[in-house]
Amino acid sequence: MIRCMKSPARLGLLLLAVCLCSAGCEKTARDLHLDEVLAHESCEKFLTAWKDGRSADELKPAIIGRDYAWDAGDKLIAFEVQPDVFNDGTNLHIPVKLSLESKSGQASTSNVVYVVGTSPVITVIRD
């Protein structure tokens, strides 16, 4: 009788131990997987869409992106992805040299960084 009682007792004690241990486990890290190849491709697609005169909304829902110069109506004449890419574990930080033309026709170049994430959705946001 004692032998057959040991099993549920152990199970109960195990459940109790799990409950007690879980009290100290509220701070857990998340795993947001980054696909570097997909991040590079998405950034290029995003910039190519801007260069082609499309809107960022046309890329949704595949790519959710934002650039305030694009919002403001600046034209992207050319872009060049720079080599110093940084992977922070969740996002790829891609430096890009942009050649822009404002609505008034003024040309300018700027070095910017896009923060690209691939999980849970693809996001391309200018840093």
Partner: peptide, 21 residues
């Protein structure tokens, strides 16, 4: 014959402990 705890007794004790926790 040794007198042990019954399954019901154990479950009741565990339930009480769980409520207290």
């Amino acid at each position: 014959r040794r007198r042990g705890f019954t399954l019901i007794e154990l479950l009741v004790v565990i339930a009480i402990i769980a409520i207290l926790v």
